[in-house]
Design a protein around this nucleic acid. Structure first.
Length: 491
DNA sequence: AAAAAAC
């Protein structure tokens, strides 16, 4: 829901193109929609909403490029509900509730989140909405689909499964949304997407939304969209300017240790840590648990129940550390997340934009810390080229390399021990431990005691283009990120 | 080269 929190008067709206005087009521939306909005405290549209809503109400195809946290979900949900309302029926007959809008999402969690939003906006209308995704029992979904539902929010595979089982018919779909479209159009998804589109009526309205748009995707989009209106509220491929970014270069086998160090310094404020691999995410979560921190992993090899429980607990602030693969990189709205850490630099530069977009949402400030090693120089260069910005190089203050060298060094146990095993076994490597407390192997550096200082909301100066390749040493915004007096040089 | 998405 915080998708639209940006409209609350108390929050700063960084890209306020729409005058504050524009209200949802000005779009001719149904009173039933306005009522739902006002009950949730929303009166003024965000810039993308102000642009998208009128265009969508005209029935035009839209290609929307919007930063995360700009209210893009409401931007397409509200017009969909409005467009479907004239034929909404209060009848209980399934035939009176055919699927007329289909919203496709690249991850299950995103489908759930979008569905929550749509349901909330449609709650005073007779329209029905439901989510459909894999990893869960088909039956409850089947019951809902067979009862009739106008708006379906789905991941592609499970949707096709329901189609094959004749639980759903898509031949009355008049509006199609591809959320996180660049991911939906990548090689892995394209065949399923094509199959789904072949099941839809030719005559329909198409919407594509994404935070980033590569030239390839733009080209591909042209095959899916008819004479689309392009809506762009911020430069595409841009990172939110409310996020302070820093990179640390460090030896590969020191990454665990540095992460643990950074987390201690932050006094465990909430953070998502991204790993490039499922195994890496599980390992890191477990290592952090061994260090006395409560961390949970979320990735595609965990059960759907585990994934949802992890995300729920994190959203409810019951867990401070979520270790994730790119399953959590896109679209997920976690309000007030102050920090994202990249344990690995992503292989796709665009995923960097998505990952760090989990913080600094709705105009709030955030920190994005990335760790990389020698072999990743190319990845970093790609990222900086994409975001047209040089990321400040940092030096972790008070970090002693080698403190955790045994974690990932040659004495690493065999792979099989890493999978699905509890924290037993290797604690002998680490000396005495105290229950619950973080193990302390060095005397505490005074620097540790310095409290973490959240980023000031002041917008960073516009970054210089990275064309020269020179590293701009911007003035550090966060003492803890860059540190004036490095205690250890060998990084 | 990895992750995601159906069973």
């Amino acid at each position: 829901m915080s998708d639209t929190e940006i409209t609350t008067p108390s929050l700063p709206e960084p890209a306020a193109a729409a005058p504050a005087t524009v209200r949802f009521a000005d779009f001719g939306l149904s009173p039933d929609i306005l009522r739902a909005l006002s009950e949730q405290g929303y009166e003024h549209p965000t810039p993308i909403q102000a642009q998208a809503i009128p265009v969508l109400l005209q029935g035009r195809d839209v290609m929307g490029a919007a930063q995360t946290g700009t209210g893009k979900t409401a931007g397409f949900s509200l017009p969909i509900i409005q467009m479907l309302l004239p034929h909404a029926s209060a009848s209980t007959s399934p035939a009176r509730h055919p699927v007329r809008a289909l919203i496709l999402a690249p991850t299950r969690e995103l489908a759930v989140q979008v569905a929550e939003n749509v349901k909330a906006y449609a709650k005073h209308t007779p329209l029905r909405a439901t989510e459909v995704f894999g990893g869960m029992d088909m039956k409850p979904q089947t019951v809902i689909l067979k009862a009739g539902v106008e708006i379906v929010i789905a991941t592609p595979g499970r949707l096709l499964d329901h189609v094959e089982q004749k639980n759903i018919s898509l031949n009355q779909v008049q509006m199609l949304v591809m959320d996180e479209a660049d991911r939906m159009l990548d090689m892995g998804f394209l065949p399923d997407l094509q199959r789904i589109i072949n099941l839809l009526p030719k005559q329909r309205q198409n919407l594509m939304f994404s935070a980033t748009f590569s030239p390839e995707i733009k080209k591909l989009a042209n095959t899916f969209l008819n004479n689309p209106v392009t809506i762009e509220v911020a430069r595409a491929n841009k990172t939110a300017d409310t996020v302070t970014q820093v990179v640390y270069k460090i030896a590969e086998n020191q990454k665990h240790a540095l992460i643990a160090h950074l987390l201690r310094q932050r006094e465990l404020k909430q953070v998502i840590i991204f790993s490039n691999t499922k195994l890496g995410a599980s390992r890191l979560a477990r290592e952090l648990e061994r260090e006395g921190m409560k961390a949970v992993a979320i990735h595609g090899d965990r059960t759907q129940q585990e994934r949802m429980a992890a995300l729920d607990a994190f959203k409810k602030n019951e867990i401070d550390i979520l270790v994730a693969t790119d399953v959590a990189a896109r679209g997920l709205d976690i309000s007030d997340l102050p920090c994202v850490i990249n344990y690995d630099l992503p292989y796709n530069a665009e995923d960097y934009v998505h990952r760090i977009g989990r913080t600094g949402r709705a105009g709030a400030s955030g920190d994005a810390i990335s760790i990389y090693s020698d072999k990743d120089e190319r990845l970093l260069a790609d990222i900086e080229k994409l975001i047209k910005q040089t990321i400040q190089r940092g030096e972790p203050v008070g970090f002693t390399p080698g403190a955790f060298a045994d974690e990932r060094g040659e004495r690493r146990p065999r792979r099989s021990e890493d999978i699905g095993r509890g924290p037993a076994g290797r604690s002998a490597d680490r000396g005495p431990r105290t229950m619950g407390a973080a193990p302390r192997r060095d005397k505490v550096d005074p620097w540790f005691l310095k409290p973490y200082e959240p980023s000031k909301a002041a917008a960073p100066a516009p970054a210089a283009p990275a064309a020269s390749g020179a590293i701009t040493k911007a003035k550090p915004k966060l003492a803890f990120l860059l540190g004036g007096a490095p205690k250890t040089g060998s990084l």
